[in-house]
Structures are given as C-alpha cells and as structure tokens.
Design a protein around this nucleic acid. Structure first.
Length: 282
DNA sequence: CACGGATCCTGATGGC
DNA sequence: TGCCATCAGGATCCGT
C-alpha cells in the first residue's frame, strides 16, 4: 500500500506520541518478509529477540525512503509496511491481536501494532544504522525527494544513464526514493510524459518538468493524508484522500480531466500503469 | 552491471 | 453459489 506519503503520514501520526516511551512487552505473530533478527550473525545484534527490547526507550521515529526507523535507547527498529501493512498506535488497549497482526509492542505511552495481511512488510532489529543489516536494507536507496541532494540537475544526470522506460526508473528507488506505483503514474501525467519513454531519451527541459511534478505530487499527497485505495489508514486510523483527485491512477477508461480522452491502462514490469494518450507524449 | 522476470503472501473481484 | 484466474500501495533475488 504505502509509498512515501503514506509512510510519512503514518510517521507523523504517532511519532510525537510514542517518543520517550519505555517498551513494556513485545509479541510477534507470523513471519514477515525478514526475521526480526535478520542481522544475527553478521551483526553485533546477533540472536536478538523481541523480548530483549523490554526496558529500552523509543527516542524518535524517522523515515528513510519507505522505511520507518525507530531509534531506541540502544539499537533501532526498521519497519517496512510492504504492500498491505498498516500501523496503529493507541494510548489505550488495542483489541485482541487478529490473524494479520504480526507485531505488537506495548509501551508506557501506548501500543504500536503492525497489521499486514500479505506479510511483505518487516520489522527488523539493527544494533546501529551502520550495522550490516541496516546497510543492506538502507545502503543502496536513492536520495530523498525532499532532501537537498534531490536537485533538478542531479535528476536529469541520473536518468540520462538509465535505459529503461521512465515509469520503471521512477519505481526502482533509484535515483529517488519514495515514488511508488500510484505517484509514478501521477507524476508522469503532470509532466506530460508517456510512461514508456526511455529515461535516457528525455530532454533536460522535460526532465525538469518531471522533477517538479514528482515534488508537487508527493507534497500534495502528503497534504491530503496519503491515498486510501482499499485499506490504508494512518496510525490513528484516519484515511487519506489523495485518491479522490488522482488524475490517472485506477481510472482506466474514464475520461481525462483535461481532454476527456479515455485513460489508458498498460502493464510495465508486472505493474499497472495509467496515462492519458493525448496529454502525455513520448 | 544493468535489465526483466519470477517470487514472497493473502484477500477482493470478476467472468463463466 | 462455486471455482478459477487475475490483480493489489513493494522490493529482492536470479538468470541473461
């Protein structure tokens, strides 16, 4: 489900409320994408168990790409929501854990729960951000779209070297993180660019348009609380509203808001892509 | 090494 | 109604 806006909206919805809390108990359900102690062996966090978190404090919640980083008084947790993950944080007691609740952490300030039917998500312990497991998961990520390193020139120079369709370059997490399937299609619409266009063939001027569109689309989605297509909600259970004003995503056959041409749906790399054949040019 | 495809898992939906 | 195929916000791994 979650792309950068959904992950950031989730972070903002509980970071301040959990900061400073002491961990009281931790339960895990079915296996997620990686084991909790995925770093064991190569790490100083070897053999770490969830129960060993008890007594540590949660200092802050940060985000890197689509990962949430929970800084602990010792070590950190890397949380990924995968396709269907959702966090809930409640001051009071949460309902009994269901079959799809795979991580429950009670703290002095409330309970944090990961609900993830498809289990593509993950909760992984790392002894530090430089530990091998953290480096493996975070080390090769592209730049943050709202960071200083993401400039128009950087973006143009990076996509020049890529010989794939621009939609797939955006989805790759390189050169920029956080743009997933919804916002890739949306950004390309706002830039007037056909998703099949080879990245290396995009002019500097059109790369500049796409750069601006990415920032505008992500910021707009953040402002609207993300997209709730089927089940996304922030950690307070609130839905997002971006989907109500998506220009192309999930609008196959519906008229383009600009020119009324039916929106086209194609597949690229086993993912759906949506675009307007008139407003978007190769 | 850069690319494309298969893959992990469960649930919802649509066609016959 | 039941059964089967397809698709869903992601990202890693593997073969070419």
């Amino acid at each position: 489900m979650p792309e950068l806006p959904e992950v950031e909206v989730t972070r903002l919805s509980f970071a301040d409320r959990i900061a400073g809390a002491r961990i009281v108990a931790v339960q895990m359900g079915k296996p997620l994408r990686w084991p909790f102690d995925a770093g064991a062996g190569a790490d100083t966090g070897a053999g770490m168990t969830p129960a060993q978190l008890v007594g540590r404090r949660i200092l802050a919640v940060r985000r890197r790409g689509k990962y949430l980083l929970l800084d602990l008084s010792e070590g950190l947790l890397l949380v990924h929501l995968g396709m269907s993950g959702r966090l809930a944080f409640s001051r009071g007691a949460l309902p009994a854990a269901g079959v799809h609740d795979h991580f429950d952490m009670q703290t002095s300030q409330g309970t944090l729960r990961l609900h993830d039917p498809r289990r593509f998500g993950a909760v992984v312990y790392a002894a530090s951000e430089s530990a091998p497991i953290a480096q493996k998961l975070l080390g090769k990520l592209g730049v943050e779209p709202f960071g200083a390193a993401f400039t128009q020139d950087y973006f143009y120079q990076a996509i020049r070297l890529r010989h794939s369709p621009i939609k797939q370059v955006l989805l790759s997490g390189q050169p920029v993180v956080g743009v997933g399937n919804i916002y890739a299609s949306e950004s390309l619409f706002h830039a007037g660019l056909r998703p099949q266009t080879l990245a290396s063939r995009i002019s500097r001027a059109r790369a500049g348009k796409l750069y601006a569109a990415i920032l505008q689309v992500l910021q707009n989605a953040l402002d609207l609380g993300g997209s709730t297509l089927r089940d996304f909600a922030n950690a307070q259970g609130e839905d997002g509203h971006f989907q109500l004003q998506a220009a192309v995503y999930d609008r196959a056959g519906l008229p383009c808001h600009v020119c009324q041409t039916p929106i086209q749906s194609i597949r690229q790399g086993q993912r759906s892509t949506f675009y307007c054949p008139v407003c978007q040019r190769p």
